[in-house]
Design a protein around this nucleic acid. Sequence first.
DNA 1: TATCATTAATGACATATATCATTAAATAAC
DNA 2: GTTATTTAATGATATATGTCATTAATGATA
Lengths: 231, 231
Amino acid sequence: MEIVKKISNCKDCIYRSWAFKNLTDDELKLINEKKVEKFYRKGENIYLEGESIHSFLYLQNGLVKLYKTESNNKEHIISIAKPKDFIGLLSIFSNQNHNYSISAIEDSVICFVDLDLIKTFIKTNGDFAIDFFEKISKLSDSIIKTRIDINTRQLRGRIAYILLFFAQNIYNSENFSLPVSRKEIAELIDMSTENVIRVLSEFRKDGLIQIEGKNIEINNIDRLQKIYDLG
Amino acid sequence: MEIVKKISNCKDCIYRSWAFKNLTDDELKLINEKKVEKFYRKGENIYLEGESIHSFLYLQNGLVKLYKTESNNKEHIISIAKPKDFIGLLSIFSNQNHNYSISAIEDSVICFVDLDLIKTFIKTNGDFAIDFFEKISKLSDSIIKTRIDINTRQLRGRIAYILLFFAQNIYNSENFSLPVSRKEIAELIDMSTENVIRVLSEFRKDGLIQIEGKNIEINNIDRLQKIYDLG
DNA sequence: TATCATTAATGACATATATCATTAAATAAC
DNA sequence: GTTATTTAATGATATATGTCATTAATGATA
């Protein structure tokens, strides 16, 4: 991890309009002075379960996973955050320590915003509080919705989900390179690695997708959508 | 459903100390004037998916379920709220309409607090905003944690979870009457009704619990906990 | 390049879970 | 109370999914 030169000013940040649009120039200046942008290579940890919470994390670029290491040392991925997403769960506002870990699944730039400062602005700037709250509430609910969508489906539906997720939510293309291993897909959608591979092969044999290593091309997105819809 | 006489004043409400402790007497008076307490019999709907959102709901008494009706008309229970819980998901702050339905699984008293008023206080009372935010963030995260805890376990672990949940979280007793049918348990922990019944019978045969209809008595909570821990 | 380690792929098999069918018990409706 | 309807219980069976073993492919390391 390396700290990115502080060339970027929050005032010009394209993400300002997302969650920080209600801050005054002065408030934004305070954020700017205290924020740190860090660059992480694919595979690097951003923080680990148990570490104390100081910052609100904002993904500027790349892709990260939120995960938990179970008692049997298996990892379970809770969600994947994409640019413009707040990273983590809401309990950063009530907990002392992180309950989950975060690592980069693609080269990523993360903006660390001082959490106390955010809390101060929640207290002192009502419009910011409301808007900020709305934004991160949505994200939290979408994690719940996704977990349910995944777990009420069987394997084919889950694989269809993950393919549609990357194609439609992350890469905006039916031709993309998987940022995660088959094992990580398994950890994300609660199935065994072997079955992830098997179902992907099955989809390939059925002509739904083409696979070449990490490269995926979706040939028939409608049928994939139908497989997802039917579960 | 019947509207409860407005004898109770928020000022004296035992729940004031939970989420509304930072409101001034005047603010609380406004809440009090606009709030409505309603009584629902077991089985009654509080609201249905698609209805528009006007209130922040607070469970005073009883037990309610948050659920979704799937396209195949099956129901899926997302969570069960107990007294002192905020009912619903955070997106009431960003959505126009409810994404889920809520109904009473025990006779319940629900306090409907005007949502716009809450938003006003978030804007104008910083201490309230922070505290309120912390409280409902916790609830949202605990739903995510629970969904993961359930779905990473197999059937025996899930049934152990639900028994421990009612004994430890809801009734504070190892002897309680199930407020839900076997079918509802199935809808809550993602398994078939038959297998809910089967595993319960198995636990009975193994001497872990006693069952008489809806009445459950836990005989060996340690072994139940172990079954839960091992998954 | 050669070696090692990790990831991917596939088959055979074991296990977990769902589905279907049937009966009994409990509740609700009349 | 009697009848209808829902809920609970259980066995038999089908299906879905996980596990183990093996090999191939890929990527990392020296």
